[in-house]
Computed example of a mutant assay.
Amino acid sequence: MKIVSWNINSVRFRLEIVERFLREAAPDILCLQETKVIDQDFPQEAFRRLGYKTIILHGQKMHHGVAILSRVPLAEDDRFDWQANREARHVGVKLANGVRLENVYVPAGGDVPDREVNAKFGQKLDFVERMTAWSASLDCPTILVGDFNIAPLESDVWNHKQLLNVVSHTPIEVDALNRLKDSNSWVDLGRHFYPAPARLHTWWSYRSPDWTVNDRGRRLDHMWATADVAAAATSHTVFEACRNWLKPSDHVPIMTEFDL
């Protein structure tokens, strides 16, 4: 079973490259973040034509939004409000084999890494804290995917020293993510297959005229699994070439294949 996670930064604006990716990579399940569309306007028919007939949505006008599209049966969907303000940032399902699949879009956190002067940063930390409380009580095999908006390791960013005070790589964010990881002994599948210090970027800013010249990337997108599911993982792929496609997202898809 191939499971993909991708922050698409508007599914309608980038539908052409999503369709191309699905034809080329043929995942069984696609988890999207930042779809930026209400459920009624989600382009479902385009996905159904490609065989993704099970479509689970949690959308929002113009902002945020998550979706799970599948060629295999899914059930028992849920939507957690880890932001505590009804933003559409999570959707989860249960696979036929009983494994949970949770798709999350963690807030970016603004520009200043200080919750006293930047409310968005505090909201981000609180979001991860709520996820941690949820994680600690998990009692079933689970895969957690999405745009975490945190690059935890020194090798997860293009320059550790220069980004220590930049939101997404600050020590307080890394500590919060590590607490989440430790709360249920999650396996970071990206680093399981590509141990640090291997380069493993998934995001490059739009601000750079040519992202390939200076390669200032960060690993903001993750796929984790509880130990029982991680044992069934057979490969992990970062589709870096998608960053050069027509009208690309600033994120690229990541995929883990499981023997489930």
Results as ranks from 00 to 15, higher is better:
Met1Ala: 09
Lys2Pro: 14
Val4Cys: 14
Asn9Trp: 12
Asn9Leu: 08
Ser10Ala: 15
Leu15Asn: 03
Leu15Arg: 09
Glu16Phe: 13
Glu16His: 13
Ile17Phe: 06
Arg20Gln: 01
Phe21Gln: 02
Leu22Arg: 06
Glu24Pro: 11
Glu24Tyr: 11
Glu24Gln: 13
Ala25Asn: 05
Ile29Val: 13
Leu30Thr: 02
Glu34Phe: 02
Asp39Cys: 13
Gln40Thr: 11
Asp41Arg: 15
Phe42Gly: 09
Gln44Val: 14
Glu45Arg: 14
Ala46Arg: 02
Phe47Ile: 11
Arg48Glu: 06
Leu50Phe: 14
Tyr52Arg: 01
Leu57Val: 10
His58Leu: 10
Lys61Leu: 10
His64Gly: 05
Gly65Gln: 11
Ala67Lys: 02
Ile68Trp: 04
Val72Glu: 02
Ala75Ile: 15
Glu76Thr: 05
Arg79Phe: 07
Asp81Asn: 10
Gln83Leu: 11
Asn85Glu: 09
Asn85Arg: 07
Glu87Met: 10
Ala88Glu: 11
Val99Trp: 12
Arg100Glu: 02
Leu101Glu: 14
Val104Lys: 09
Tyr105Gln: 06
Pro107Asp: 13
Asp111Thr: 12
Pro113Met: 05
Arg115Leu: 12
Val117Asn: 04
Asn118Asp: 15
Phe121His: 13
Gln123Trp: 15
Leu125Arg: 14
Leu125Trp: 15
Phe127Val: 03
Arg130Met: 06
Trp134Pro: 01
Ser135Tyr: 15
Pro141Ser: 03
Leu144Val: 15
Val145Ala: 11
Phe148Arg: 12
Ile150Pro: 10
His160Ser: 13
Thr170Glu: 05
Glu173Gly: 10
Asp175Glu: 10
Asn178Phe: 09
Asp182Arg: 01
Asn184Phe: 11
Asn184Asp: 04
Ser185Met: 01
Trp186Leu: 06
Asp188Thr: 11
Leu189Asn: 03
Leu189Ile: 02
Leu189Glu: 07
Gly190Pro: 06
Arg191Leu: 03
Ala196Asn: 04
Pro197Cys: 10
Ala198Asn: 07
Arg199Asp: 02
Leu200Met: 09
Leu200Asp: 08
Trp203Ile: 11
Trp204Asn: 04
Tyr206Thr: 03
Trp211Pro: 02
Gly217Phe: 11
Arg218Phe: 09
Arg218Ser: 08
Arg219Trp: 14
Arg219Val: 04
Leu220Gln: 09
Leu220Arg: 04
Asp221Cys: 03
His222Met: 11
His222Thr: 02
Ala225Tyr: 00
Thr226His: 05
Ala227Met: 05
Ala227Cys: 00
Ala227Thr: 05
Ala230Leu: 00
Thr234Leu: 12
His236Cys: 15
Glu240Ile: 05
Ala241Tyr: 04
Arg243Ala: 09
Leu246Phe: 08
Lys247Thr: 03
Ser249Met: 14
Ile254Lys: 00
Ile254Gly: 02
Met255His: 03
Thr256Trp: 00
Glu257Asp: 04
Asp259Lys: 12
